[in-house]
Design a protein around this nucleic acid. Structure first.
Lengths: 194, 194
DNA sequence: CAATACTGTAAGCAATCACTAACAATATAG
DNA sequence: CTATATTGTTAGTGATTGCTTACAGTATTG
């Protein structure tokens, strides 16, 4: 018997560096040579782990949500679930999109006629929306406010708020402080519903 | 004296086709050969009109807002200014991002470390926000509701709403009907303020 | 007319880059 | 030990593509 494959393990190990590269450089300026260099391996190795450059990109997309989810789980550990929404909102008001991964998403969104990329992005967005929705339900469940309208749409509103916050950060359209106020203020609006 | 230059005129003439190409294909898959073909000219001609491919892309970015502004002006012609916000919201609930130009923006957002691209995008976003803000002020000015918080941030909220609507459309995450409800429902929330 | 710059057409080049082939070295299971 | 598949290293290539050069034709002004 030969030695057992460690491919999937190696993939997990390298994905963060791959994601960072795409986040720093976008898709087209992230050459496979650059990826190899950042991963401290030869290009060849990458092609044993992933079919082609696109597959590396998709792995980066998948990693984004996992990375967020891990941060959130850490943050909410031991906290009461009704407080989760407020805690997350306060945290993201200052830290949202600080890792730069949003640029991976933008790069992907300009390639949405590729079915695999679209699928990966769709899955990622649906996960985000589902997570937000869960927090919203727990939050609103506690109080019995006059909640009007579909709560699922409010969750999508949050996704939009996050997106514009990332854009505003990327383009330096608002100061950190103003961007924080944007998140908390519009966030609170969505949290409570009209 | 030689014949007068018609360069700027020709630029105006070709920009819509250029923008359509970038919208259809993204940045990297839009080759200069493809651009030339769609414009029904030789590549060479394009390089007389713009310094390089990036300049063509930036021209496309600039065109996006102009295109929207023209549509809106048409739509609001002869309408009372207090009604503008509602009219626009109702219109965009079904027509937002239908031209596909959003993909130009996403392509640009993944290249934001280029100063010229960032500048073009920042200008475009600021124009959109300023326009929305203007409509919001006219809308809220008419009624004297309990408007809490910074109205400028609400305008950024609208920009976020538009962005998520474009994403949701691109990725087919919601049906047309649901997306319309997203726009109107969250839009109304932002319109009135908490 | 004539000078001058603009417009159109064709061909091609230099550089980048995704991807591969070939081979040596190594670790594991029987 | 040995067979087998994995891992590491080097080099290279075919294709794409942004951009340029060169030249012929044309319209406009003095």
């Amino acid at each position: 018997m030969p030695r057992p494959s460690q491919l999937s393990e190696k993939r997990r190990l390298l994905v963060p560096a791959v994601a960072k590269a795409f986040a720093d450089l976008g898709y087209r300026r992230t050459t496979t040579a650059e990826l190899a260099s950042r991963c401290r391996v030869q290009e060849n190795i990458l092609y044993r782990l992933w079919r082609d450059k696109k597959a590396m990109f998709i792995a980066a997309i998948d990693y984004i949500y996992e990375s967020s989810a891990q941060t959130w789980a850490e943050l909410l550990k031991g906290k009461p679930s009704e407080a989760a929404a407020e805690i997350l909102l306060a945290y993201e008001a200052t830290h949202f999109a600080e890792n730069g991964y949003a640029r991976i998403i933008f790069a992907g969104l300009s390639e949405t006629d590729d079915p695999e990329i679209r699928k990966a992005l769709a899955q990622m967005y649906q996960r985000y929306q589902a997570f937000v929705l869960e927090q919203l339900q727990k939050h609103r469940g506690s109080r019995n406010g006059k909640l009007k309208g579909d709560i699922g749409l409010a969750a999508w509103g949050f996704v939009g708020l996050g997106t514009v916050a990332a854009i505003v950060r990327e383009l330096k359209l608002l100061s950190d402080k103003e961007r924080g106020r944007l998140m908390t203020q519009v966030g609170r609006l969505l949290l409570e519903g009209a």
